[in-house]
Design a protein around this nucleic acid. Structure first.
Length: 391
RNA sequence: GCACGGGUGGCAGAGCGGUCAAUUGCAUGAGACUGUAGAUCUCACGCCUUCGGGCUACGGGGGUUCGAAUCCCUCCCCGUGCA
């Protein structure tokens, strides 16, 4: 199911092939985020122009949108008009993003400590306004329809109805602001939930990945890596609260990776800036997913091998050079900087779409280069090239 | 020529005696974005500043007033209507 095809001589970097019912994923791979079974700003056909291997959709969002229609849902592949591999996230991240993150206006790494204004905001947020209530067996989400419950069994059932190739265990993503005691309790909960996920899984054709949690605490991370790594999951993901800085984040990964079974694919959840890809790959990460390429494209930020630039800036008004002269994507082949900028400024709906095509293509293309470099033993050289990137 | 209506910061356009260096939008500049609450958000945007404040400003000039972008006179422009 997962086959390691080559290893870098001077790091933990490796290439592999992950077999899924809808085709193979060459790793290290970038997973494109399409939360609502759709990559934002793209038309279904666009995805095929972007070297995309695999897309990740979200259980929570689709559960909310589809509701009762889940019972006779056509399946994500049909819905998305995409015959390649699809992953669904379990909804565990929304425990954080709609819960703690929203209440305290924090992210899961870096810039996590709210300033005074934000602390005041958090203090003034009455408990009734909290959208998430965590309980022993799962999570109550306050939604437009009222209150709805999502736990391990529910998440697996929904993910089976959605029909992705790879599904994720339901976890609680904690916050960097959670203390040791809370994180430990949450980890205990998460471990119990994940075991329930394994038990609840009925479909044989889907792969189920477990998720390592434990915040920024070494003993908890190691405990989790051993525990989750020891369960019969098809792959392992590293999730959650990743400390106060990138340094902390890589520390967490360093603690975790050596304790995970070598032969299973490893997914670093939600991480994927360019530098992170190199830092992650050399530590043995096989899969990344991140909203950066798509979200930033919509915000007018384009990525190239020389760093990023914001196409909406006035300095590009009369710039008729290509967006990225080294890029072979459809957008770069058809538009100049000036033209794409004009589309953004005139609120042309295609602006975000065209930028998104480029960014996805760029990230996927970069992953391809990374894979090649591992096979050719030139990974380090490629990394050096991107080391001083503006990011 | 007469009669109205106008002339406000890069632009559009509020304000119509004090709380106005002047609402707002656009443009511009800076920043953010990491298992998508986000094709979004934050900040700056006359000049100077020891960041307390100071200076020059609402077409030009003059006046009334303790105080004018706001009221009056006059000149110059623009729009509309009538000659």
């Amino acid at each position: 199911m997962f086959k390691i095809t080559s290893k870098d001589s001077s790091s933990r970097a490796r290439t592999g092939i992950l077999k899924t019912p809808h085709g193979e994923i060459k790793t290290p791979a970038y997973i494109i985020v399409g939360t609502h079974a759709k990559v934002r700003a793209l038309k279904p056909k666009d995805l095929k122009k972007t070297k995309t291997q695999v897309v990740i959709a979200n259980t929570y969002h689709l559960w909310q949108t589809l509701g009762d229609k889940l019972n006779d849902f056509e399946g994500l592949h049909k819905k998305m008009d995409w015959n390649g591999p699809i992953i669904t996230d379990s909804g565990g991240f929304q425990v954080f993003s709609l819960g703690f993150a929203r209440e305290h206006r924090v992210g899961k790494i870096a810039n996590i400590f709210p300033d005074e204004e934000e602390q005041e905001h958090a203090a003034n947020l009455s408990p009734e306004k909290n959208l998430v209530h965590i309980e022993k067996n799962g999570v109550r989400f306050k939604t437009e329809k009222g209150e709805e419950f999502l736990g391990p069994k529910e998440s697996i059932k929904i993910q089976e109805q959605l029909g992705a190739d790879i599904i994720l265990a339901f976890d609680e993503c904690t916050s960097p602001l959670n203390n040791y005691k809370y994180t430990k309790e949450a980890l205990k909960r998460t471990h119990a939930w994940e075991k329930k996920c394994l038990k609840a899984k009925a479909r044989k054709d889907q792969l189920l990945f477990g998720i390592v949690q434990g915040g920024e605490y070494q003993d908890l991370r190691k405990e989790s890596a051993k525990y989750i790594g020891g369960l019969p999951f098809d792959g392992l993901a590293i999730g959650g609260s990743l400390g106060k800085s990138k340094k902390d984040m890589w520390q967490v990964v360093n603690w975790t990776i050596p304790l995970l079974p070598e032969e299973k694919p490893r997914h670093l959840l939600g991480i994927g800036q360019i530098k992170d890809l190199f830092d992650g790959v050399e530590r043995g990460i096989d899969m990344f997913d991140c909203v950066i390429p798509t979200r930033e494209a919509r915000h007018g930020r384009l990525w190239t091998a020389r760093g990023h630039f914001d196409i909406i800036k006035g300095k590009f008004t009369n710039n008729s050079s290509p967006l990225d002269k080294t890029c072979d994507c459809e957008t770069c082949k058809t538009l100049t900087k000036k033209e794409l900028r004009e589309r953004f400024k005139s609120k042309d709906k295609d602006a975000a779409r065209l930028a998104t095509i480029h960014n996805i293509f760029f990230f996927n293309n970069l992953m391809e280069q990374i894979r090649d470099s591992i096979q050719n033993n030139t990974f380090d050289k490629l990394k050096q090239k991107f080391l001083n990137l503006k990011s």
